[in-house]
Design a protein around this nucleic acid. Structure first.
Lengths: 193, 193
DNA sequence: TAGTATTGTACAACACGTTGTTGGATTAGT
DNA sequence: ACTAATCCAACAACGTGTTGTACAATACTA
């Protein structure tokens, strides 16, 4: 790795440490360079401003199509049932989950959430394209609902300090995604009567 | 309304107009007061800083418990089926939907989203409290999944310029919430084979 | 290989804009 | 005319982004 790359990474790392602690508005260039051990001016040889640094980090966390496996590919062998997307996103989350969680959290970046959802929608839709779905608009809304729910589910889980084990979470997810949230709630209510 | 209140509202309105256009970091006090037609110093007699102005706006958009009707209250007359929360949140969204959408959007405030979801969860859970649900943790996750999905659904709809009519959206929502997103997707796929 | 030119990296210093505050002048409400 | 609200001018403190410079690494030439 060239010196240039080393320096840039050091700056990005320092920035990320600060970003975990406090919102963008309260982070200064000086803080970043102090922590990384450089002069403040050096920052500007690598980035236009702090926003660009964040953009670069966000870009590195955006999933490529290859990172999300096709949920429809095993349709035939799977008696017409699509496989659960959480499996497909697992690799991605395992690797970047911790960082992604920060961007999704209360001090995170709404633009990132927005783009992440758009990207995932786009990927899933592109996979489904060959299948020639008629209700295209409706389809997109269902995808959106599900992706948002899935992300929030995961986020809340991290926020709660993973208060239930991963399998239980998977079970909740599966039941909800296949039977519907309101039906599940109904079941939970009827169980106690 | 006193002169004081009028001025404060004017300042908040001007701030909101700017907030719709660009992110917090690029808004200056001078811009706000120029737009509202006041001196820059006047801003500081009403707010500590720009952040406080945003906090006040966010607070005014937080739903009270009274604004969300109890989705369980008609359980008995409703053959054990809970009524759909979208009905309950409708009044709230009708009134504040446009503003809320900005805060949920790409230039919005992640803290607001976080708090909004937490508040809605809390309200719904408080309604369900009397019913003594056993799987409390699981219940919360299902609620979270659903709320996030519902909000995103609505947000995407606004973003798409309401490309389908409200009834269609309601239909998509209902089917998804009661049958499960993945099941709906399965149906859409099977329909074309 | 030695010596020289070229490039790139980091730095310190600067001018600029915004912030948050102050005290006193001015205007508007009743 | 009295009081409260607003304006205005000036201020220090701070963060920003740009400039010119020194030094190190690398490439070039003989």
């Amino acid at each position: 790795m060239s010196r240039k790359e080393v320096t840039k990474n050091n700056l990005l790392d320092a920035f990320w440490e600060l970003y975990k602690e406090k919102p963008m508005a309260k982070i200064t260039v000086k803080e970043i360079t102090d922590r990384a051990g450089y002069n403040r001016g050096t920052f500007y040889t690598y980035f236009i401003d702090i926003d660009e640094a964040l953009e670069i980090l966000k870009a590195s966390l955006m999933p490529d199509k290859e990172m999300i496996i096709n949920p429809f590919i095993e349709l035939k062998e799977n008696d017409g049932r699509i496989i659960e997307p959480i499996e497909g996103t697992n690799d991605y989350l395992k690797k970047n989950g911790e960082k992604v969680a920060v961007l999704l959290g209360p001090n995170g970046d709404p633009g990132f959430v927005h783009e992440l959802k758009a990207r995932l929608r786009q990927i899933i839709i592109s996979y489904a394209k060959d299948l020639e779905i008629k209700e295209v608009e409706d389809f997109e809304y269902v995808i959106e609902y599900h992706i948002a729910g899935l992300i929030s589910l995961y986020q809340l889980w991290l926020e709660k300090g993973q208060n239930i084990d991963e399998e239980s979470l998977g079970h909740v997810y599966e039941e909800t995604a296949y039977k519907g949230a309101l039906s599940v709630i109904n079941r939970m209510l009827n169980d106690i009567r």
